[in-house]
């Protein structure tokens, strides 16, 4: 019944689109692969921009609003670029009762960024996670993908400080 339109051209000549393109084709351009494709796009670019969403929508033959609805439903997806470095403070229950809020407060005091915000110089994004499953090492903080356990505010500040001074 439905006919599939031709595969659209990527938004730009940026090589990373090839990876997104491959993910789309790997799933046979099936609409149900939307979330997988968005994951790939975010891995490649760090966030989902409008052009990219349009590209994925066209390639998967999906309505724009549906793609936007999905992209904003799941909290892992970000529609704006992150800073050079990310510091993810786990706010799972174990981390919460063992002092994660204090770490966030310390980061905010020192760098003026609340969770979800990026410093003006674009160096640091502070994020929170629902639970990264490192409860045995609570409180946990993820510095650019590297998990640090049993953190206290001063440790976290020290790790971040290293980035900021480069």
């Amino acid at each position: 019944m439905s006919s599939i339109s031709a595969m659209p051209a990527p938004p730009s000549s940026d090589k990373r689109w090839k990876l997104v393109d491959a993910a789309i084709k790997r799933h046979g351009r099936a609409g149900h692969s939307l979330i997988e494709c968005l994951h790939t796009m975010q891995e490649c670019f760090g966030y989902l921009d409008e052009q990219g969403l349009k590209y994925v929508a066209t390639a998967l033959n999906l309505p724009l609003s549906k793609v936007y609805g999905v992209a904003t439903f799941y909290h892992i997806f970000s529609l704006k670029p992150q800073g050079e470095h990310t510091c993810v403070v786990c706010m799972g229950t174990a981390c919460y009762i063992k002092g994660a809020p204090q770490i966030l407060a310390a980061l905010e005091e020192k760098y003026g960024v609340k969770p979800g915000e990026t410093t003006k110089d674009n160096k640091l994004s502070v994020l929170t996670a629902r639970c990264i499953g490192s409860c045995g090492l609570a409180p946990a903080v993820v510095f650019d993908g590297d998990v640090g356990g049993k953190m206290v505010s001063s440790d976290a500040l020290k790790r971040v400080e290293k980035w900021m001074n480069i």
């Binding site: 706010m91 799972g92 174990a94 629902r130 639970c131």
Partner: peptide, 8 residues
């Protein structure tokens, strides 16, 4: 999709 915070 182990979502409960505090469960691993």
């Amino acid at each position: 999709d182990e979502g409960d915070p505090g469960a691993f």
